[in-house]
Design a protein around this nucleic acid. Structure first.
Lengths: 205, 205
DNA sequence: CGCCATTGACCGACGGTCGGTCTATATAAT
DNA sequence: ATTATATAGACCGACCGTCGGTCAATGGCG
């Protein structure tokens, strides 16, 4: 049987199925054959739309992170709050984002998703770096933050926090453990951002 | 032709060859066949010593990082310097360690080494976390550092700094760029560690 | 009719397995 | 002390299923 679809729709179908399988079974453990079999299309169709398995991974992650980041950017632009409030909003959002690929993927062993995580980290950084830098600049202008290297600090924080929150060595059900992590983060951020402790405090909870 | 060797030596040979190939061609681009062909041994021999390609990667990285961390530990234990000096020593060492796998691997595209880097990061963290925490505790006892969450701060810093130093977006020959990165790091560390600015300053260069 | 989305048989390379061989050493018999 | 025998485990390479990827053929639609 041969069904011709709107190319955009077909591409979406492929990406959706790939996304589902990557999340439930891991990237390496998902074969191109599985994707096309589940969809009932031929392998050639897959390679008509994507030139490699890695390319569809990139497309899936790009699409996900674009949506995510655009949502946040839209909110920030239409609200006129200060840098401190913006930063708290974004950080809380990121930290509570145990929805999304990272979370759904958690039950799959990491070693079957090395490439996925690497690419996710890259794209996450790529999308959020400009947002955070902009916020820090605003906060510096407003004399709320006091720091000399907003770009570099954004880099360390973005990368460090992400990796930091991914460490779940102990029973990650333990909410006390998470609480301590967040408290420590508050201390670190307060210090690094150089905020006036009397007027502002990092509140992540 | 069949040559029987001391098993430890054979294992070393396999690990050395694997290491060389992983570094020069990348992990994914190195096949088990290449390793055994270069050594002139049969594939069965490889699987007699390692139960998977991934296992030899782990053995190689474990061996490398063990050596590295043990060297540092030995130095720290036989010297009786304060926490501040110890931390500077370790940080400089880590930062200048653009020798070692990370550096040698740089000319290979990262996407052919996702699993290698993931595992390297894990093992790096695993080996250095206890060292840094110990140093921070010492420095706190000596009233040099002032912070509440040495464990968590070590986590963020270790992970953040590593990822941070790996970003080489612009021409990484540009020493001014590296200098700015290090200056920013100095500022961050100074703040996070809560050091008395008059007596101590983070000096990474 | 011409275009291109779609098909699925096909390919080489890969990681990994397996039945079996060879040799060095320990043990027992002479 | 010397020789036969048994055991362990290092070593071999043909073989396997699966994978990502290719491509010539073909069917459907503007």
């Amino acid at each position: 049987m041969r069904t011709v679809k709107d190319p955009l729709e077909r591409k979406r179908d492929l990406m959706d199925m790939a996304s589902m399988l990557f999340l439930s079974r891991g990237y390496e453990e998902t074969s191109v054959n599985m994707i096309v079999e589940q969809l009932g299309v031929a392998k050639g169709t897959f390679y008509h739309y994507f030139k490699s398995k890695e390319e569809i991974l990139e497309a899936v992650l790009e699409s996900y992170l674009d949506q995510y980041a655009e949502g946040i950017k839209a909110f920030l632009e239409e609200s006129s709050i200060n840098g401190y409030e913006k930063l708290m909003f974004v950080l809380k959002n990121i930290l509570s984002n145990n929805q999304g690929p990272e979370h759904l993927t958690k039950h799959v062993e990491d070693n079957k998703n090395a490439r996925l995580h690497q690419m996710l980290d890259e794209k996450f950084y790529e999308k959020f770096y400009p947002i955070i830098v902009e916020i820090l600049r605003q906060g510096i202008g407003e004399k709320i933050f006091h720091l000399q290297y907003p770009e570099e600090i954004t880099q360390v924080l973005l990368l460090g926090i992400r990796a930091y929150m991914h460490i779940h060595i102990p029973n990650f059900k333990d909410s006390q453990y998470m609480k301590t992590k967040l408290q420590a983060l508050e201390e670190i951020l307060g210090k690094v951002l150089g905020m006036d402790e009397e007027k502002y405090a990092v509140r992540l909870m």
